[in-house]
Design a protein around this nucleic acid. Structure first.
Lengths: 300, 300
DNA sequence: CAAAACCGGTGCAAAAATTGCACCGCTAGC
DNA sequence: GCTAGCGGTGCAATTTTTGCACCGGTTTTG
């Protein structure tokens, strides 16, 4: 769009770190770009770039402008989405930052179900940890975040939250599979794999083990990939841990899942959220509503 | 600003109702303006005007665009205000829609006090009833509203609220001035003036009179001007009604004010608010904080 | 019922804004 | 002290925008 063109050039300069490099990226002369930037600053009333000998860098005013640019663009996208919606077109795009756990079962099912009604809507799904997810929201890189136990929560507006007990994964022939509910001490006595430290599952397990004076987790394998861990238990007689929303509980994938007793380990909170105060495009807003309903089904 | 120019032209067309008239207003040729509008619609992807034989009119998509334009402009003003603030300039502009009652004492004092610290900040103060005030907020015509008992409350985000008992105004030689607190029936027995029906004071008085089976108000004069009524009691031996925040309680202006008993008439709520979800410019946000503190002093 | 008054839209040339090119002065790094 | 890379500027070329004249259509007016 015409009226956002200055903003595109400004963003290009920010990315490139210098006007000349940005000019090359944008297929324009450095002098032309230089004048655009200068004219913008003049009209805006304040400089937004520091001039360094090797290039330019945003000053504090520029940081505000950058945020404004991002907000502006997202706002305009929402406007178009609203207009498209009222002309009955029902198209749009939804961008999601989510925990890894939701990638195999939950989100594919939800998205497929949504697209059955709204085939014009496209999706963007990226695995992000809870820090990155919030950052993605505040830079307008994602519309929606779906993560366990997010941290800051300053820019994160919680739309829906469900508690999830931790489940233990094992092969069907594991004797523990006979019990309906497992105790933490029984699990730690067996060989187990565990997610690395930044994941909510691991945090909860570590805290629980520490609290009850049991010995710490001694995973035979640590990984950032729940996919890997889910498959590992099929090969060696080991346990893995995961939230049920990331699992298939039918047993048809070869593994059995049993909940850890809530007496031992508190549940983790799965939070659905968006950037605080932001009005989402129509498609995203509707998908949030669907997710929110789907999450209620997981309510303890 | 450059990137808002299309928006200015669009607004001009909306105001004028036809491209030709708008072109005249904007000192431009109709053909040029026509092409701007057409180009915008083409780039935007949707028509925003209905072409009528006598001009043009916004279609529903256009309504959304209009709202976007207003939000955009306000957002840009806030950005400039934030940047100005961080360069230490402390300038800006605050636009207030408020009840008449706040014009004589409360707001002048508050604004003067604020401008002592921030002389670069300018103000816009307009008396609006509670319907108009909310409309002003949602069209971004005012930043802040300060009204009694606003109605819709859908777009109105309450920042602070204080209850105000109704006070009775009289000349110092009125025998009622001897009492610390007045009963409604005593007041209605005397000649009195009253605000017209749309005002909160009148609503409360009418409701109270009706409820207690007393006879209705029989004002010897009805007016929309509290200024008029305040002065009237100085000339004839009559009573007037007003919230204390609109009064000088020192007696130095010639009238005496006594509260109506809360047993007879419930207090009215003075609400300080802004457009829901909007982030105000720095100057406005700070002034809201000051108003909020000042209002606490009136807490019952 | 016809003329006049407006309306949005378009072709074309004039005017204005933007861009590209050549070049300046400056600083960091070698 | 030399070079490479940077932001900035004067001037001409180029692209974009505008103004003017005019078209076809509809409503108002006499």
């Amino acid at each position: 769009m015409r009226h956002l063109r200055d903003f595109e050039f400004i963003e290009a300069v920010i990315r490139a770190g210098s006007i000349r490099k940005a000019a090359e990226d944008m297929n324009i002369t450095a002098s032309a770009l230089n004048r655009r930037i200068n004219r913008f600053e003049e009209e805006f009333g304040y400089e937004i770039f520091e001039r360094l000998p090797r290039g330019v860098r945003l000053n504090p005013a520029g940081e505000l402008v950058l945020h404004h640019i991002r907000a502006q663009r997202s706002d305009f996208a929402r406007l178009q989405s609203q207009v498209a919606d009222l002309s009955g077109v029902r198209r749009g795009h939804v961008s999601i930052a989510c925990s890894q756990a939701l990638l195999p079962y939950f989100l594919p099912e939800q998205i497929a179900s949504y697209r059955k009604d709204h085939p014009g809507v496209t999706f963007n799904v990226n695995a992000r940890d809870r820090f990155e997810a919030e950052r993605e929201l505040s830079t307008f890189s994602s519309d929606i975040a779906l993560v366990f136990e997010p941290h800051h929560l300053v820019d994160f507006e919680v739309v829906m939250s469900v508690d999830q007990p931790i489940y233990v994964l094992m092969r069907a022939d594991n004797p523990l599979a006979q019990q309906k509910e497992l105790r933490l001490r029984d699990c730690l006595a067996q060989p187990h794999v565990a997610p690395s430290a930044q994941y909510a599952v691991r945090l909860l397990l570590d805290a629980a083990a520490k609290k009850t004076n049991m010995e710490r987790l001694r995973p035979i394998a640590e990984s950032e990939s729940f996919d890997f861990m889910r498959h590992y238990v099929l090969h060696e007689h080991a346990l893995a841990f995961q939230f049920p929303i990331g699992l298939s509980l039918s047993g048809e994938h070869g593994y059995i899942a049993r909940p850890l007793s809530l007496r031992d380990v508190p549940p983790g909170s799965l939070l659905l959220g968006q950037l605080r105060g932001r009005t989402l495009p129509v498609a995203s807003a509707r998908f949030v509503m669907q997710l929110s309903q789907a999450m209620q089904a997981y309510h303890l």
